[in-house]
Design a protein around this nucleic acid. Structure first.
Lengths: 353, 353
DNA sequence: CGACTGGTTGATTGTAATCAATCCCCGTGG
DNA sequence: CCACGGGGATTGATTACAATCAACCAGTCG
C-alpha cells in the first residue's frame, strides 16, 4: 500500500524538491508550509511518517514535535526533522525531544529516501504481530489442503524396495519418474573434482525426490542413494505431467517446494562460506532435529554416519568428530555409540561463530 | 521498575565511566567489551535498551545492530550507538541501519541520560498493545491484459530510476512487486551473524529480480541493492499473479528459472564447501564472463569492486586480491585499475584444486 | 579368527582470515 | 592550483583453524 508522508517545510524550493523526490519513490506526499497547517493535516490524513523542518515561522519544528507526541493517535508516527547541516545542537535537541531521525539540508536524495524507508520499516514492524499470526495459520491451511493431492499423486505409482546404500538415480541420467518416499531415508549428493562428496538433500518418508529436473526438463544434476532400507513409490513422468497440468493447486505445491529449496540452499551457502565449523555443525544438528524430530520427542536421537554428516556440513570427517566431542564435553549433545542426542537445543540454535 | 541497559564498548575507561553515570541514574547496567559478548548478554538479560560503540574489534557496532534487528525478541529494543564526535558518516550509516539515536564521544552526562531516557519512554509507549491493527491489505488493482510473454510482462509496470548502491528491497519485508532490470546491475545478498555479506544473485538488464518470494508467497529472504545507476520496471504483484494464473507458458518459464536457480546454487555449494580458493576465484571469473560477456567480446572487462567479488566467491577481500595478483602474474588475467580482463579463458575454466 | 567398516585421537601442515598500514585515485573546496 | 579527505585497492605480518596423514580401537560379519 502506498504510504502517506507529511512534509512540513517553509522554504518553497526545498519543499517542492523533496515532495518530488518522495513522489517519485511512490509515496503519497502532503506538503505544507508551516507548523500549524502541519498539525491539522496530520490529524486529517493520519500520515505514516512526518518530515518537519525546525526553523519555521508561527510554530517551529520543536513545537510540532511536541504536539505530535502529546496526541495519542499521532504519537507513534515516525518523525524525521530537517535541519541545516552544521547545527549539531539543533539535532541533539530534536532527538532528545523524541524525533526518530533527522535529515540535513542541503540533502541528498538517497539519504532522504533511506532515512524515510528505514523509519517506515521500523514503524511497520511494531504494528505487525497480529498480521503474522494470520499468515501462519493461512499457510498451514494451504499445506493441509495440498496434502491430499500429494497423497493422491503418491497413490498412482508402483512401489519399489531398495536396500541400504543403493543408488536410486545417477547424476547425468534423464528422469523418467518422480519418486515418493514411503518409508526410509534417501540422500542426494554431488562430488567435486577430487571426489569429495557433498550432500545436497536429505529425504524421509513423505518427501518427494527428484522433481527439480522433471520441472525444468533436464537431466539429474546429482546422484540419489538410500541411507537405509527404503520403499519408494515411482510415479511415471507422463502421469506426473498430466496431473500437474490439470491441477493448479498441485503445481502451486511443487513451485513452493522449489522456492523453499532455493531459500534453504541460499541460507546454507551463506553458512558454508562464512561460519565457523562450530556454528555449521550446530546448525546442521538443529536442521537434523527439525527434519527428523519435528514433534520434539525428547528421546529422539540423530542416526547418521559421521561420514554423511560431514558431507552435509561440508567439512572433513575428523574435524566433525572433534567438534562433536567438544560439544559433548560442553553437555550440549550426548553421544551414544554413533547416535547423537541433542541435550541443549536452544544453546545450539543460538550458537555463534 | 529498574530498567536494564546493556553497554557495549571496548575502551575500558569510557565503559566504566558510562556505567557509573548510568548506575547513578538508577539503571541496572550490563557492561561488556565486545560485540559478541554484547549479543549473548542481550539474549540472556533482555535489556530495555542497548548502548553500543561502533568501532570495535571482532564484531563491530553495525554487526551488533544487524543481529539485534534480525532477532525477533530483540528487534524492538531501543538501540543507541556511540561514535566519535566528528564522524557524520558513521552516524548516518548507523541511523540508516535502524539505530534509534546516537551519543558522541567524548560525551556529556546530561546528553547521555536524556537520550537514554527519551528512547526508553518511546519504547514503553510502543509496547502497549497496538490500537488499530486492521490495516487494509487490499491492493487489488485488477488490470487484466492479454499479454503472455516475459517482455510484455516487463512492459506493464512502471519505470523507476535507482542510483548506485540504492536498496531495492530489504530482507524480511514483504514483496509487493516483481522487478525487471531495464538497464544496470543489481545484486542480492544476505549477511551472516557477524555481518559478512554473501552475494546470492547478480542481475543485469533483461533479468527478473525478486520472483522467488512472490512464487512461494513469503517475505524476501535477501536484500537487493543496485551496483550502478539502474532502471527497474516494477510490476505490481496482483498483475503478475493474474498473468501467471492465466498463462501456463509464463508459469513454465518461471518454474524453469526457479529450477535452474537450484542447480546453480547446488553447484556453488559444492564449490564453496570443498574447492580451493584458487579454483573458486577462477570459477567466479568464468561465471562473470558468461554472465556479462556472453557474446565473447575480446575487449570485455569485468567491472566489479573487489569487495563485491569477494562476497560472491565467499572469501575475504584481501585473500581475493592476493589470488587475483597471482593469476595476473601467471598471465591468466590482466588488471587495469580495478577492472579485470580475462586473458586465458580456457586455463581458468580448467583450473583444478 | 581375520578382514572390514566406522569411529576416534594425535601430530603436523597449509591455507586463508585478520589486523594494520600504505597507496592511489578522484572529487571538492579553499 | 593544491591540499585534503574518502573510498578502494594493495601489501605485509601474524594467527587461527581445519585438512591431512597416520595410527588405533571397537564392533561385526562371514
Amino acid at each position: 500500500m502506498q504510504k502517506k508522508i507529511l512534509l512540513i517545510e517553509d522554504n518553497a524550493d526545498i519543499r517542492e524538491n523533496m515532495a518530488e523526490i518522495l513522489s517519485l519513490a511512490d509515496y503519497q506526499v502532503f506538503a505544507v508550509q508551516d507548523g500549524k497547517e502541519g498539525i491539522s493535516t496530520a490529524l486529517k490524513e493520519m500520515p505514516d511518517l512526518i518530515l518537519c523542518d525546525i526553523m519555521m515561522p508561527v510554530l517551529d519544528g520543536y513545537g510540532v514535535l511536541h504536539m505530535v507526541q502529546k496526541n495519542p493517535v499521532l504519537q507513534d508516527t515516525p518523525f524525521i526533522f530537517l535541519t541545516a547541516r552544521s547545527e549539531r545542537n539543533e539535532i541533539r535537541r530534536g532527538m532528545e525531544l523524541g524525533a526518530d531521525d533527522y535529515i540535513t539540508k542541503p540533502f541528498d536524495g538517497t539519504e532522504l529516501l533511506s532515512a524515510v524507508d528505514m523509519r517506515l520499516r521500523k514503524a511497520d514492524r511494531l504494528k505487525r504481530p497480529a498480521t503474522s499470526i494470520l499468515q501462519t495459520s493461512d499457510e498451514s491451511c494451504a499445506i493441509s489442503s495440498g496434502k491430499d493431492l500429494l497423497l493422491e499423486l503418491a497413490g498412482c505409482g508402483n512401489l519399489n524396495r531398495y536396500k541400504k546404500k543403493q543408488i536410486v538415480y545417477w547424476e547425468g541420467s534423464h528422469p523418467t519418474r518422480l519418486f515418493y518416499v514411503q518409508k526410509g531415508k534417501v540422500k542426494t549428493f554431488k562430488r567435486n573434482n577430487d571426489g569429495k562428496e557433498f550432500i545436497t538433500g536429505l529425504f524421509r518418508d513423505g518427501d518427494f525426490v527428484g522433481y527439480t529436473p522433471l520441472m525444468e526438463d533436464t537431466m539429474y544434476r546429482e546422484t540419489a542413494e538410500t541411507l537405509e532400507d527404503t520403499e519408494l513409490v515411482a510415479i511415471p513422468r507422463s502421469e506426473f505431467e498430466i496431473l500437474l497440468a490439470d491441477n493448479p493447486a498441485l503445481m502451486k505445491r511443487f513451485v513452493c517446494m522449489l522456492a523453499q529449496n532455493i531459500d534453504e540452499k541460499e541460507e546454507q551457502l551463506l553458512s558454508v562460506a562464512y561460519n565457523s565449523m562450530r556454528k555449521k555443525v550446530a546448525d546442521t544438528l538443529i536442521m537434523l532435529c527439525n527434519k527428523y524430530n519435528p514433534e520434539n520427542n525428547p528421546d529422539f536421537q540423530i542416526d547418521l554416519s559421521r561420514e554423511n554428516m560431514a558431507a552435509i556440513v561440508g567439512v572433513a570427517k575428523e574435524s566433525l568428530i572433534r567438534m562433536l566431542s567438544e560439544l559433548k564435553d560442553e553437555n550440549l549433545i550426548g553421544l551414544q555409540g554413533s547416535k547423537i542426542k541433542v541435550l541443549d537445543y536452544l544453546a545450539l540454535k543460538q550458537m555463534f561463530n
